[in-house]
Simulated assay, not measured.
Amino acid sequence: MSILALVEAKIFMETDKKNLLMHLSPNVRRAWNHRVPVMKMKPRIIFDYELLYLERGVLSVRIEETVYTLEPGDIVLFKPGKEHEFLGSAGESWMPHIHFDVLYYDNFEDVPINFKRKTECQEIETTWIRPDVLGHILNIPDVIRIKNHSEIHLSLIQLIHAYERSDTDFPILQKSLTLRILYLILKGLDPAASSPFILHQTALENTVTHIIENYGQPISLDDLSKIACLSVYHFSRLFKQKFGLSPHQFQMKYRFERAKELMIYSQLSLTSIAEKIGYSSVFAFSKAFKQSEGVSPRQFMQTYPGV
């Protein structure tokens, strides 16, 4: 790994989730729809990540000090530098899997798939061990058991098929599919994705649609809770759990995003824009916009030449 990559890795290990997500640039090193009658492998570490989906069979896997019994639908994320071994299997094992880097490294093509223990690796090889940003920052566990595993399986198989063909556009496709797999894992692991949240998923989406379609009109919490068929308290709690904002904050954010769009791309005056997004005066709009965005509407417009 270059000095620059080492510095970037340290930054990522100390950064937050949002910043990491903005910098993800996965590259797939190996993709294989592996099927064997018996699965056993000696202890080893890997330098990158390996994501394995157990499609058929039962596997016994040790990851450091913990032994797991894997069944169909289970997903394993083998992480850089963590010793693991396959202790045995029952029945034929179908294990589509990929080896990948989650961040961009200029030595991507030079780093091999490893089959040795860390103590058996040469000093230069230990420098190839990637930082575990998926575990340390995104909190993805070693063994993943989630309800939406079948969606991940479909994307994984699509990725393997694309890897086997590897046409000139493969770098784009493999990045998008790997990012989709990580997205599905994070959504599946989200506590909010479990019941009773799923029960009210459609209801919450309906309230967001109502806010978007009526963003310039007064919308009360009572109105939204009735659309969702929930109590005001229950609706408010679930809405913020899913979207990270209260219903009012969500509407205000959408209003200001719509105002920005109108300021940049329309010829409307600030007074007309204020009225369009639900403010009775341009003064009230300007005050609210500055409190939210840190600049006045006119200052915002000055950052776009030609507006």
Rank of each mutant, 00 (worst) to 15 (best):
E55G: 13
N19G: 06
L52Q: 09
K253L: 11
R35I: 14
Y49A: 05
T207M: 05
S296I: 02
G306W: 06
P26I: 09
T127P: 04
I98F: 00
R44I: 07
V143S: 03
I124S: 12
P112A: 08
D222I: 07
M22F: 07
L77Y: 00
I185D: 02
R255S: 04
W32K: 14
P112E: 09
Y265V: 15
I152F: 03
E151P: 07
L177A: 01
Q174N: 11
L224E: 01
Y304N: 09
L156H: 00
L6R: 14
A162D: 05
I160L: 01
M22T: 08
S60P: 02
D169V: 06
A284F: 10
E83V: 13
R258W: 06
I198R: 12
V102Q: 02
G57L: 02
S150A: 09
F289A: 04
P112S: 11
F243N: 06
W128Q: 01
F47H: 02
D190S: 13
L20C: 12
R62T: 10
N114V: 07
M13Q: 10
A274S: 14
E293F: 02
K175N: 07
D106T: 05
H234Y: 14
F285R: 03
I63Q: 01
V282T: 15
R165A: 08
Q217F: 08
Y104I: 12
N206C: 08
I172K: 08
V67R: 12
I140A: 04
I152S: 03
G81V: 06
C229G: 10
I146M: 02
R62P: 01
M13E: 14
Q251F: 03
R237Y: 12
D142H: 09
M301T: 13
H200D: 04
D101N: 07
V208D: 07
P72R: 04
S25I: 10
I146F: 04
P171D: 03
K82H: 12
N139H: 10
Q291F: 08
G91F: 01
D106M: 05
I137N: 03
K42G: 08
D167G: 10
I157Q: 09
G73T: 05
F115I: 13
Q241V: 14
S225A: 15
Q217Y: 06
G73W: 06
R258C: 13
I46F: 05
P112K: 07
Y265F: 12
M252T: 14
T168Y: 11
S150D: 11
K242C: 06
M41Y: 15
H23F: 07
I219L: 10
E8G: 04
I264R: 08
F235W: 05
T168F: 06
D110K: 14
R117E: 15
S296Q: 05
P131Y: 00
K187A: 07
N33T: 13
C229R: 12
A31Q: 03
S246I: 12
E125Q: 10
H23W: 09
P96A: 10
I219N: 01
V232S: 13
A5L: 14
D16H: 06
I11A: 13
P191K: 08
E123F: 06
E65T: 15
L51Q: 00
P72N: 09
